[in-house]
Simulated scan of single mutants.
Amino acid sequence: MKPYQQIAIDECGEPLVPIPPEHFAFEIPHPYQNLGAPYHNSKANSPYYLRQGVVDSLIAAQTELQQNYQNWKILIFDAYRPVEVQQFMVDYTFNQIAVAQGCEFPVSEDKRQVIIEHVYQFWAVPSLDRATPPPHSTGAALDVTLADKNNRRIDMGSPIDEISERSYPDYFANSNHPKEQQYHRNRQILKNAMINAGFQQHPNEWWHFCLGDQMWAWLTNQNNSVNPLIARYGRY
Rank of each mutant, 00 (worst) to 15 (best):
Q214I: 02
E14R: 06
Q181R: 14
I163K: 08
C12K: 09
D91V: 06
I7K: 11
L229T: 10
S108Y: 13
H184I: 05
V55N: 02
K43M: 08
A140P: 07
I97E: 06
R185Q: 14
H23R: 02
N41W: 08
Q182W: 05
I115C: 02
D56Q: 13
Y92D: 10
Y69P: 00
K179A: 11
A44Q: 04
G234K: 07
E205L: 15
H208Y: 15
Q5N: 10
Q181D: 00
W218A: 04
R232M: 10
I195T: 01
Y120H: 14
K43C: 12
Q67A: 10
I195V: 06
V17N: 04
N45E: 05
Y4E: 05
M215K: 09
N224D: 12
Q70S: 09
A147L: 01
V144I: 06
W218G: 01
A140K: 05
V54W: 08
Y233V: 03
P228K: 05
D56A: 13
Q62G: 03
E64K: 03
L211P: 00
L229F: 15
N45Q: 11
Q181G: 05
Q113L: 12
P134E: 00
I74H: 01
I97W: 07
I97S: 02
N34H: 14
N45Y: 03
M215P: 00
S158M: 06
N186E: 03
P134N: 01
A197K: 09
Y49K: 11
I9G: 09
E162I: 00
